[in-house]
């Protein structure tokens, strides 16, 4: 089973401390560690899952949110299939920075068509009672910036984590016909072009 699946690169971006590594750990290993270290540079984990009958290997790239690690993380944006923009609902600054993260990603990932690139927005730490960012505020931002799906998650109590990641996969598969990325592609792109355009319609 493991083999015949497509490999999707999903990257987690957001300010330091918003819980990117915790989200990844929760999703892949179903664990939560309050004492997690800062991520240095870039790390990733693989998660195999099946979404709508597609067997997919999701490669979740966790990045260092701190500004000083910028040069270590940006080279790895390229080739991402989906970007998870993450903020913490108890930190309005992290929400305001989403714009910058999106810009940084588009710039370094060299995204050809930013309009249609799948972003998913995650408001983490909803288990904390004092919210600085309201759901409405976040949804408004998502709507204004390209109609991105928004999930309020908690890595601590596992709220919405799987749903968010699965949505990311769904977005990728929906936006682009990924069949060419399925590995047995001895068949070359002949049918692909017309199909891609048809999906636009």
């Amino acid at each position: 089973m493991a083999g015949k699946s497509s490999l999707l690169k999903v990257i987690l971006l957001g300010d330091g401390g918003v819980g990117k590594s915790s989200l990844m750990n929760r999703y892949v290993t179903n664990k939560f560690d309050t004492q997690l270290f800062h991520t240095i540079g870039v790390e990733f984990l693989n998660k195999e899952l099946e979404v709508d009958n597609h067997s997919v290997t999701m490669q979740i790239w966790d990045t260092a949110g701190q500004e000083r690690f910028r040069s270590l993380r940006t080279p790895f944006y390229r080739g991402s299939d989906c970007c998870l923009l993450t903020f913490s609902v108890d930190d309005s600054q992290s929400f305001q920075n989403l714009n910058n993260w999106k810009k940084e990603f588009i710039y370094y990932a060299d995204v050809k068509d930013p309009e249609h690139f799948p972003f998913v927005v995650l408001g983490n730490k909803v288990d904390i009672s004092e919210h600085q960012v309201s759901t409405e505020e976040a949804e408004a931002w998502c709507r204004d910036n390209g109609n991105h799906p928004y999930f309020e998650t908690s890595a601590k109590d596992s709220t919405n984590v799987s749903a968010a990641f699965e949505e990311a996969v769904r977005r990728v598969l929906a936006i682009e016909d990924r069949s060419d990325q399925l590995i047995h592609n001895d068949t070359v792109n002949l049918h692909r072009k017309p199909k891609a355009s048809s999906s636009c319609c």
Binding site: H38, V42, K47, F69, S71
Partner: peptide, 20 residues
């Protein structure tokens, strides 16, 4: 299924932590 760290060739020693 463990975490894998990724870096560019040409290490800057000061940017790496002990833990890695």
């Amino acid at each position: 299924s463990s975490r894998v760290s990724v870096r560019m060739v040409g290490l800057q020693p000061d940017t790496l932590s002990t833990a890695s």
